[in-house]
Computed example of a mutant assay.
Amino acid sequence: MTTVMVEDLEPGSADAGVPAHFGDPMREQRLLETGVGLVDRSNREVIAVPGAERASWLHTLTTQHLSTLSANQGSELLVLSPNGHVEQHAYVTEDGTTAWLDTEPGAGAGLLKYLETMRFFTRVEPRDATAELAVLSLVGPDAAGLFPDLAAPQVGAVPGPRFAAGSVPARATSLYAVRAFQGGLARRVPLGVDLLVPRSGKDAIIEQLGVRRAGLWAYEAVRVAHRIPRLGWETDHRTIPAEIELMAPGVHLDKGCYRGQETVARVHNLGRPPRRQVLLHLDGVATDHPPARGTAVELDGRAVGFVGTAVRHHELGMVALAVLKRNVPDDARLTVGESAAAIDV
């Protein structure tokens, strides 16, 4: 089996260190959408938060309702700036003694630094655990069958503006079932099952699972088709939660104060975020190369947004997640570099 690494194709990529594909990216996409494939995502960074007060402490620092998160449960959280801009996004996995936070490549140091500055006298001991645990993902409709004891993910709907106080359940807005696995943890998520496994035993666990491999390119194509954003790809320094598809899984709108909450509440009550995340179809006539992250999306020659992740999907063709100004019409004739673009409504 041919293994092509991300850095071989994209020197300097933040996703370096994991396979991009194994010789046939389109076949690997189909595998992830019709069966199950194993994707090495060990470039993700992991922060461990042990300590008796970890749940209440993380509850006060982040957008998620975590004070009631119990052993063998997972969720998602955001850390915001004082002005409500998205600074961090992480999955949290609780095993009963430690909350494990896994986040994007390159984001771990910033998340850990923030947590360390907010410790004060709280009984928590956050540390960088990237060298301890690696993330593997079993993706596809058949992934759940490999872990039938893990309940399906629960993600609540975002309530409407000016909802009644107390109408949002006092628990995490996304709940992912977790159990022990091979010295680590298995976590059921919308795309399948994530495994947090000992990094030293990663290769042996991959071989033992015996699941067909797929590269990160295939994973990214599936993620884009499901409109799941990534921190640093579909976000910039101005992004607020209401602009991207992280509100439902990552933001509890009826909990105690946290940094940036005023902006979240104000924008939600007004119902008018300045931008929105969309899926774009690109014609691919002038070029068959997906545009680079950050490429401007233009309307009549002026920039109205930017491309986050662009991929070539085995059924949809060339598509991209993009963030556009809210007032861009759904039927606008857009351009991205040399390609014409249309919003998928």
Rank of each mutant, 00 (worst) to 15 (best):
E315M: 15
T2Q: 15
V278Y: 01
Q29D: 01
G210L: 07
V86Y: 05
G140S: 06
L61V: 03
D203C: 10
T62E: 00
R27A: 15
E33V: 14
G337P: 01
A16P: 04
V222F: 08
A52H: 15
A55K: 11
S81E: 00
G256S: 05
R266I: 02
L32N: 01
V251S: 09
D330K: 08
M5R: 12
Y91T: 15
V278C: 09
Y114S: 00
S200A: 15
T287H: 01
G17A: 04
T68D: 10
T263L: 06
G260P: 04
E125F: 13
V92C: 03
D15R: 12
P50I: 03
I47E: 04
A164N: 12
R119G: 09
L133W: 05
D331K: 08
L138Y: 03
E132M: 04
A71I: 01
L146E: 02
L9Y: 02
V193L: 07
R333D: 15
T98C: 14
E45I: 07
R266K: 00
I343A: 08
V264D: 05
H314K: 02
I206K: 13
L111F: 07
H314I: 01
V18W: 10
H237D: 13
T295G: 11
S81R: 08
L133R: 06
V189I: 13
P153M: 08
W100P: 01
G17V: 07
C257E: 08
Y258R: 15
V193C: 04
H89K: 14
G12C: 03
A172G: 11
G156N: 13
M5C: 12
D95F: 06
A48C: 09
D142L: 12
Y176C: 11
K202E: 01
R44P: 10
E132N: 09
A14P: 13
A131G: 11
E104A: 14
L31I: 11
V79N: 05
M318L: 01
V193K: 00
V139H: 03
S174W: 07
L282M: 07
V6M: 10
S137N: 11
V39T: 06
M5L: 15
D40A: 06
G250I: 08
V4K: 14
D194S: 00
A16N: 07
V251E: 02
G305P: 00
P273E: 12
A218C: 08
M247Y: 02
